[in-house]
Amino acid sequence: MNARTSLLILGLAVLLQACVGGAQKPPKELLALNDAQMKIRSFQTRAFDANDQNKVLRGVVAALQDLGFIVERANGPMGLVTAGKFGPNGRGFVELTVTVRAKGKEQTEVRVNALFNTKPIEDPKIYQNFFAAVERSLFISRG
């Protein structure tokens, strides 16, 4: 290997390293809120006319169990539930994080984030179905 070839290899290595370095930078909009995200947030949130945060949290857990989800974690004081569900024959996986917080004095707000195969679910119908199950669970509990 002569001096010119060695120099060329060295130069190429430096150039390639620069490319890798550039790719590693996180995107600027990583933590920025855009309109689409605000819309998704509104699908993911619903307020219930109940002032007992713990009761609503338990209603959420019961609704998740009815839908066949496995509740992985539940934290009362934090109002937090995480759950998961495998599809038939182990195909596909949905994971959920639900937070339950008091909204004013009369209402409780439930927010759910759902992932399907690690990708966020952005279909409003899915969230409507989830909240219908929570509503039913709270209603059954009242009756």
Partner: peptide, 24 residues
């Protein structure tokens, strides 16, 4: 045969849901 199930199916109460609830 190996198609991924639709995400909608994960959030629907099936006829078996009530049976499972009674069992559990």
């Amino acid at each position: 045969c190996v198609q991924m199930p639709k995400v909608e199916t994960f959030f629907v109460l099936t006829p078996e849901s009530a049976q499972h609830r009674a069992l559990q």
